[in-house]
Design a protein around this nucleic acid. Structure first.
Lengths: 213, 213
DNA sequence: AGTATACCGGAGGTTACCTCCGTTTTGCAA
DNA sequence: TTGCAAAACGGAGGTAACCTCCGGTATACT
C-alpha cells in the first residue's frame, strides 16, 4: 500500500537510461479527479468523522470507487493527503495575509485560522493521530511547514516592531496547539479567546513597547 | 442500543407492586458465559487491538454471537465492561500485595503492574478514549477506584515509615499515568525504568530517612 | 491522425455487523 | 421430584462497507 508509492518514486529515480515516458505529464482528468476527491474527502471527514464510507466520498466527488482507490490505495493515504493539502492551504494563507494587512494583524488572523483549522480536523483526529506517530517523516514535514509559516509571520512582526522577538515559530505552534488540545470537544470559541490572550502577550513585549527584563 | 439498557433499568425500578420474580437469581450459564466473554475479549483486545471482529471474540469464548450481543449490546458496552473488569483486578491485586509483602515493596510491585496494565490496554485505547470522555461517571468511577487502591498502598507505606507522606493517590496516578502516556508505543521497558525512579523518590523522603526541607 | 499508455468506473466477492427467532436450559414452586 | 414459565442460547441470514479486477475510454505523445 504505502510501499506502492515508495516503489513508484524509486522507479522514477532509478531510471536514468532508456526512460522516455517515465516523466510524462499526468493526464488532465487524473489531476482533476484527484482534486475532486481531496475536496470531497475534506468535507466528508469534517462533517461526518473519519469513519465516513469511502463509497460516499467517491460518489460525492462524482467519480467511481475504483478511481478513489487508485489515487489513494488505503484510507490512511487519503487521510494523509487531505491533511497535507489543508496544511498547505493554511500555510499559503500566511503569505496572503502578510500582503493584505500589517504583520501583527496578519499574525492574529492566522492564529485564529489555525484554531479553526484544528477544530474542523477534530473529526479525523482519531485516524490522524496513529498516522502521525507511526510516520515520523510525515509528521516532521507538516510540522516543519507550519513552523516556517509561523516563523515568517513572527519575523515580519518583529521587523515592524509590533511583535516581541523572544518567541519562535515552534513555541508559537506549541502554545496554540496546546490550547486547542486542552479545550475539549467542539468548543473552539474558548480556544479563540485564549489564543487572543496569547496574541496580546506576543504584542506586549514588542520593541515598540516596554520590555521588562 | 444504549437506550435499551436505560429502558431495562427503568422497568426494574418502576415495578414496585406485583413483581414476584423481579430479582430472580441470574442463571448460572449466563454468569459463566459473561465471564468467558469478558476474558476472551480482554485477550483479543490486547492481542489484536480494538477492531477485532466480535464474531471472533464470541467464537474464542465458545458462545454464539447472539449471546455476545445480548450481554453487550454494542462494542462500546463490551469495551467498557472489559476495562471495568481489569481495573477491578488491578485494584484487588493491591490488597493481595499488601498481605504478601512489606508496604513499600507492594507499592513498587503495584506501580509496575500499573505500567503493564496500561501497556496491554494500548490496543483498546482508541476505543476507550472517546468512551471515557463522553461518559464522565464511568471515567470518575474507575479513576476513583484506582485512586483508592493507590492511596491504600501509600498510607500503608507511610504507616510503616518507608514511604514519604506528602504524596496522595491522585498525585501518584497522575505521575505514573503521565509516564506511561509520554513514552510512545510499545516501549513499556522505558516506562518501567522511569516508574522505578519515581518509586525511589517516594521512598527517599520517608519518615525513616532524612527529609530535606 | 494514430497509438500506446494511463485512467475510468462499477460489478461483485469478501468480511464484519447485528437482528431475529426456534430451541434449550434453569430457577422456582407445588 | 416434577412441571413450567422465564430467561438464555446460538447461528442463519440480511445489510453494509471494503477492496479488487478488468473491459472500455480518454489523452498525451509522435
Amino acid at each position: 500500500m504505502v510501499a506502492r508509492e515508495v516503489e513508484a518514486a524509486e522507479i522514477r529515480v532509478s531510471a536514468p537510461e532508456g526512460s522516455v515516458s517515465t516523466d510524462r505529464r499526468p493526464r488532465a482528468d487524473a489531476v482533476r479527479n484527484r482534486d475532486l476527491l481531496l475536496s470531497a474527502a475534506a468535507d466528508a471527514f469534517a462533517a461526518r468523522g473519519a469513519d465516513v464510507p469511502l463509497d460516499d466520498i467517491a460518489r460525492s466527488a462524482g467519480v467511481g470507487i475504483g478511481t478513489l482507490y487508485r489515487h489513494f490505495p488505503t484510507r490512511d493515504a487519503l487521510v494523509e493527503a487531505v491533511y497535507r493539502y489543508e496544511v498547505d492551504v493554511l500555510c499559503q494563507r500566511a503569505d496572503q495575509l502578510l500582503e493584505e494587512m500589517p504583520p501583527d494583524q496578519a499574525l492574529a488572523e492566522w492564529m485564529q485560522l489555525f484554531v479553526r483549522h484544528v477544530a474542523t480536523k477534530k473529526g479525523m483526529l482519531s485516524a490522524l493521530k496513529p498516522l502521525l506517530s507511526s510516520n515520523p517523516s510525515f509528521s516532521d514535514q507538516t510540522k516543519g511547514r507550519a513552523q516556517a509559516a509561523a516563523t515568517k509571520l513572527l519575523n515580519a512582526g518583529v521587523a515592524a516592531g509590533t511583535v516581541r522577538a523572544d518567541v519562535d515559530g515552534a513555541d508559537l505552534l506549541r502554545a496554540v496547539g496546546g490550547i486547542c488540545m486542552s479545550t475539549d470537544q467542539e468548543r473552539s470559541e474558548a480556544s479563540e479567546r485564549l489564543v487572543g490572550l496569547l496574541f496580546d502577550g506576543l504584542r506586549h513585549g514588542a520593541a515598540g513597547s516596554q520590555v521588562s527584563g
